[in-house]
Amino acid sequence: MRKGIFILLMAIISIACKSDKKNENGEESPSSSETVQMKVESESEKFEKSLLDYREIAESYATDFPVQGFGMQKFNDSTFAFVFKVGNIVTNEVVEKYSIGLKGYHQNSDKPYTKSASPSLTTIGNNGYVIIKRKIENIKYFDSLETYSYTRDNWKASGKIGDFKLKDILFE
């Protein structure tokens, strides 16, 4: 009789524990590690949604430096950032081997907007981003943006290592 009561008690506890993991729709709730992962992913997604004209891309500056996304970030009327998503496989050591050049073409001028940078890696959530903050005055749109990389320490000898062009960049 004791054995029967013990088995019945264990069955009730087991069912009660199972039902705790279900939400109001009867679906299983994620475990604590899954919840943490969801928060990390949502932090990256929230950042990407805050960017102006964000888009997924599949380009690379070098074989060890792929780029998965691009967007613009506005700080004030004349300060913007070019944001390149590099995911979670690119390290700061890789990013610091290269410099990045930007050449933006716009209809307001015959001369392109040109800048270069020695970038570093910024981690948001579980993704890495290269964020190049620059002052951009009297331009609200690039017809195209050519972006390229070269070796940081020996740019004359390396020349362009990798480049790609993005079209229709809106940052207003």
Rank of each mutant, 00 (worst) to 15 (best):
K18I: 10
T35M: 05
N126F: 01
L170H: 14
G71N: 12
V94E: 05
I131K: 15
G104C: 02
I136L: 04
L102R: 01
S14G: 11
A62R: 10
S19R: 01
Y61N: 01
K46L: 11
S144T: 02
Q37F: 09
N92I: 03
E137N: 06
I136Q: 11
L52S: 14
S99Q: 10
T79Y: 11
K39M: 15
N25T: 05
E28I: 05
E96L: 03
E34P: 06
V86R: 03
A117R: 04
E43A: 14
K133Y: 12
K156L: 15
V94A: 00
I132E: 07
E45R: 13
E28G: 05
N88S: 15
S99T: 05
M38H: 01
T91Q: 09
N76I: 08
S118G: 14
K167N: 13
E27K: 14
A117I: 12
E56H: 08
G71V: 10
F80Q: 06
E45Q: 13
K165Q: 13
L102M: 08
M72G: 09
S149I: 05
A81I: 08
T79F: 06
A16L: 13
V40T: 04
P66C: 06
I5C: 03
I132Y: 03
F171C: 12
L51V: 09
E59N: 11
V95C: 07
Y113C: 00
V130G: 06
E28A: 06
V36Y: 00
T151Q: 14
N76T: 05
K103D: 01
K167Q: 12
H106N: 12
K97C: 03
K135L: 10
K115H: 12
K49E: 15
K74T: 11
Y98P: 05
E59G: 01
Y141T: 01
I169V: 13
V94D: 02
I100Y: 05
F142G: 01
E172Q: 13
G87R: 04
I169W: 08
E27S: 09
Y150A: 02
P66G: 04
T151K: 13
S33I: 11
L51H: 09
K160I: 14
E27D: 13
A117F: 15
E93A: 13
G125K: 05
T122N: 10
T79E: 10
S149N: 03
P112G: 09
S42C: 03
I136W: 08
Y150Q: 08
K135R: 09
K18P: 00
V90H: 04
Y54T: 03
L52D: 06
E41I: 12
D53R: 02
W155R: 05
F47A: 05
N108G: 15
F84S: 00
V67I: 14
S33A: 07
F84K: 00
S60Q: 13
V90I: 12
S32T: 09
K156N: 10
V130M: 09
K85P: 04
I15E: 09
D153N: 14
Y98D: 07
E96W: 01
N76Y: 07
T63M: 08
F6D: 12
Y129T: 06
Y141E: 04
I57T: 07
G87K: 02
L145V: 03
S120N: 02
E24M: 04
Y54A: 00
D53L: 04
Q73P: 08
Y54M: 02
I7P: 00
F142K: 01
S149F: 06
G104K: 00
L52E: 12
I13G: 08
L170Q: 08
K133T: 15
L170A: 06
I132Q: 03
F47T: 08
